[in-house]
Structure formats: structure tokens, C-alpha cells
């Protein structure tokens, strides 16, 4: 039982890292729908680096670096050029999907390094995730920088007028967000499931993106949502633990995705949106033109 819980929590850290990065992005007003692409690239870079150098640490660094770099690229397009953020995000995703399939395929198979040591069977990434949630919450709601980030996402013109460098703040956030997405991908390929195969994420990134909307942009609610989805994901992989012999295992695999849709609907109802509207960054997805 503990094993299942520990494994679920490890799965949830992958959702959590990526979604936390996206949350910081969105709080500053930048929407990155290419989250899955950043994770694919981060995960593949981490896997290839770790396998060639034999070092987990270098792998994680590669994942972080590439994630940050791609986040920066998204920032260049959406902040500097004020392009359509959805076009850029979707572009990043398809670019990653295509290139990682090609670059990773010679490495198809297990990582072949020792497992990352666990604490009483629990992956060390879960406590790291909880710590990151606490840090993000403190950063966003208890520091001047956090106030600057939130105001850049709510009303960039007013923020700029009060002396906040909106462009730099947004660049900082997309880079941080990209690094966290890269970390999430690296955690997947180096720890959770250290095997590279074609399109290994199969929708984790999009579920993480949905989680940010569910969280009402609050890191603590995000933690709860990610944990819930981690458990659900793990159960969908081994349904025999609760309902042995009921339905095909393939049908169970659809459950986490199928549940996401009604939740998305509920949070979009006018009844819910009266609450939601208050939390959604006002300037989300809108480019900011100084002047």
C-alpha cells in the first residue's frame, strides 16, 4: 500500500514541477501552452546527458538548462515580438515532439544507471516539490518581487507606471517556468520511469496545464490537485489493485484524461467563475506594449 502511495506521490511531482513553472509564467501574464514540449525536450536532454556521462546530476542540469532556454525562446516571441502566445506555445510543442522523437530514438531503452536513492521508499523529489510550492507561495505572496510578478500579470501598464520593469519580470518568469518544466521532464526520464521511448509523456504536460487552471493560480491548491492526479494516474496504470478484473486495462488508462474534462467544465461555469475570475491573472495571454 505504502509502495503505491509513494509511487503516486512521485508521479504527482512530475505534474507539480511543470504546473508550478506554468503557474509562475501565468502569474506574470504569459501563457505557455507548449508545456508538454518543454517537458519532452527537458526529459530527452536529461536522459541523453545522463546516459552519456553516467551522471544523474549532469542530466538534471541539462534538463533545467534546455527547459530554461526554450522558456526564454517563448519569451522572446511572446514578450519582445508580442506574437500570439498560443502560436508560439503550440510551435514549441510540435517542434519538441518532432525533434525529440528523432534525437531520442537512438537512445530508446532503459537508462542503465542506478536508481536515485529514496527516503523510506519515497522519491526525494516529492519533498523537494513541497518545498518548491512553499517557496513559490512565499515568493509570490510575501515578497516585493512576487508583488511585481503578480502586478505584471494583472495590469502591466499600471505596474510599469509604478516603476516595475514588466518586460524583465516576464522574462524572468518564463525562464523560471521553462526550467521547472525541464526539471519535470528530467524527473520523469531519470527517476520516475527511466526508459526513453517514443512520445513518452503522452499528455502529462497537457494535464499539468489543466492543473494550473484548476489551482486557481494558488500553489497550495496546485499541490493538492497534482497529488490527486498522481494517485489517479498510478491507479489507472494498475486498476487491479482496487477493482480486479473489471473492464480492460486500456479503458482505465482513459480515466485521468476523462476526469480532466468535467473538472474543466465545472471550473468554467458562471457559478464557479465568480470565484475564478478573481484569481485569474487579468492580463493573461495578452502581450504588453510599453508606451
Amino acid at each position: 500500500m505504502w509502495e503505491l502511495v509513494a509511487r503516486s506521490l512521485e508521479a504527482s511531482t512530475i505534474f507539480l514541477f511543470a504546473a508550478l513553472g506554468e503557474l509562475i509564467d501565468q502569474r506574470s501574464g504569459v501563457l505557455n501552452v507548449g508545456l508538454e514540449g518543454l517537458m519532452l525536450f527537458g526529459g530527452t536532454a536529461a536522459f541523453i546527458t545522463a546516459q552519456t556521462t553516467g551522471s544523474h546530476a549532469l542530466g538534471f542540469l541539462a534538463g533545467l538548462a534546455l527547459g530554461g532556454l526554450l522558456g526564454l525562446g517563448h519569451g522572446f516571441f511572446s514578450i519582445t515580438l508580442r506574437g500570439d502566445q498560443v502560436v508560439s506555445g503550440m510551435g514549441l510543442w510540435i517542434l519538441s515532439f518532432g525533434l525529440t522523437t528523432y534525437l531520442g530514438s537512438p537512445y530508446t531503452g532503459p537508462l542503465g544507471l542506478g536508481r536515485i536513492p529514496s527516503l523510506w521508499g519515497l522519491s526525494p523529489f516529492f519533498p523537494l516539490g513541497v518545498a518548491l510550492v512553499a517557496i513559490t507561495w512565499l515568493l509570490l505572496f510575501r515578497t516585493g518581487l512576487g508583488l511585481a510578478i503578480r502586478s505584471a500579470g494583472e495590469n502591466p501598464a499600471a505596474a510599469e507606471a509604478s516603476g516595475i520593469p514588466v518586460t524583465s519580470i516576464r522574462f524572468l518568469c518564463v525562464t523560471l517556468g521553462g526550467m521547472l518544466a525541464g526539471l519535470s521532464g528530467a524527473t520523469y526520464t531519470l527517476s520516475y520511469n527511466p526508459v526513453w521511448n517514443y512520445n513518452f509523456l503522452m499528455g502529462w504536460g497537457f494535464v499539468s496545464l489543466a492543473l494550473v487552471f484548476f489551482s486557481m493560480w494558488n500553489p497550495w491548491i496546485l499541490l493538492a490537485g497534482a497529488s490527486l492526479f498522481g494517485i489517479m494516474w498510478q491507479l489507472s496504470l494498475s486498476p487491479e489493485l482496487i477493482l480486479p478484473g473489471v473492464l480492460s486495462r486500456y479503458v482505465w488508462r482513459t480515466v485521468p484524461f476523462a476526469i480532466t474534462i468535467p473538472i474543466l467544465c465545472i471550473i468554467s461555469t458562471p457559478w464557479f467563475r465568480t470565484r475564478w475570475g478573481l484569481a485569474k491573472p487579468e492580463a493573461l495571454g495578452r502581450p504588453y506594449a510599453k508606451g
Binding site: I94, L95, S96, F97, G98, L99, T101, Y102, L103, S105, P106, T108, Y198
Partner: peptide, 10 residues
């Protein structure tokens, strides 16, 4: 390696 067609897509 596998996936030249996907790489081109990217």
C-alpha cells in the same frame, strides 16, 4: 535514426 519525418515536422 527513427523519426526523420517527425523531426522535419518540428
Amino acid at each position: 535514426p527513427f523519426g526523420v519525418d517527425y523531426a522535419l515536422l518540428g
